[in-house]
Design a binder for these strands. Sequence first.
DNA 1: AAAAAAC
Length: 503
Amino acid sequence: MSDSVVTNTSAAVPEASGTPGSAAAPTFDQFGLAADILKAVTESGYTTPTPIQAQAIPVVLAGRDVMGAAQTGTGKTASFSLPIIQRLLPQANTSASPARHPVRALILTPTRELADQVAANVQAYSKHTPLRSTVVFGGVDMNPQSEALRRGVEVLIATPGRLLDHVQQKTLNLGQVQMLVLDEADRMLDMGFLPDLQRILNLLPKERQTLLFSATFSGEIKKLAATYLRNPQTIEVARSNSTATNVRQIVFEVHESDKSGAVAQLIRERNLKQVIVFCNSKIGASRLARVLERDGIIATAIHGDRTQGERMQALDAFKRGEIEALVATDVAARGLDIVELPAVINFDLPFSAEDYVHRIGRTGRAGASGDALSLCSANEKKQLADIEKLIKRPLEVETLTVTTPARREGGRRERDERPVRAERGEHRHAREESGSRRRATSFERSHARQQPVDEFFLKPYEPSPASVKRHDEAVEHERKAAPKQPLAALLGGLGMPRKTTSS
DNA sequence: AAAAAAC
């Protein structure tokens, strides 16, 4: 749930061991948090604060503004949620009157999924307190959100657009906000949220505590901080633009048209139980999910053209372990907390090197090891160079011989085995001798489910039973959330990109 | 060049 360090429960640290100044492992006791909060922390399975929690919690409790540089997976969410709850607790009351529950803490995030996840954390940490929290974001019915706001909440988690919508609808008043969190602030600026942020900030009392978290401290971020933060304490856990040393990063040079096959092959050969595959485009993500499904890998796509119901469904199913490959655009690059993901695959190298750092941050979480496997085609060399420059080291490059069927231009299929480094002249032979029988590779032999090639390309796509089930669930979910758009849900459920209204 | 986010 939270992005705190998950400690092995069988080796749980006794709570009493943490006396101040002792060499014992630190515990959450040291912060002076209320018993009701500590109880929830313990129930969540966390015993030892992460470095950012150890640094940020006392500073936030002291009421200071914070400029935090921390990636997700460092325990960032708890580092601001816990002290926010603590600071609001004295003002919490059990009255049913909405007027007694004004919004006192506002947490803004760039994506809907991240908002939902932060809200789940806040909910978990505050469950033994009278404090109320809720989350508002776009893509879903406003009415239940309006109703929750009308009843009153002390902690509100939101994406900027829908928040302003509620302000405009007069279902939300921000006049009593005492604490503001800008989570993934650099991402929000990247996404063009600056005007929205400025409008929101102008609605808030000047007298407040502001916490800004960002993966990088660009000039824009510094300017934002200089304008809206007061004498902030800088907290930096891992140097920005650095990648975790427990993540092994490998680049596979492949032909563009071999990429789908390469993904399936990497998943099988490395026996990856769960993996996020990042694509640069929404259409590419939908297409890859379909090809992987066809290849017997349970896969689903998550991107901005799918309905919110489908996005949530996909993420939940992935978290429950029902999906092997979550094929995503950069909507999932930041913030998503999925415990102990063994690997991420970059189907495309991201356009921005910083996004690479965020994408591979989805693996090797909380000290566990992980693999970041990137496919690089001939026209992505520039991106590779940019990444190596940003992380200040060259990446390991390996050869991958793709043996799965790969779609070719014009709908025809290339032969099975083709060296991927042909353009470098490192291949053994580009083509088999005609007439010579090639022995099946161990991969192919173990891959009995594979359909004959012609059949695959002649038959229309048929979703797997698992896919159909998920689709039906998504449609049902969508019907409940937004009864006006059954067609959109249906198209999205089949992995089809929906038409966007914007240009 | 692409993605994300309000109706």
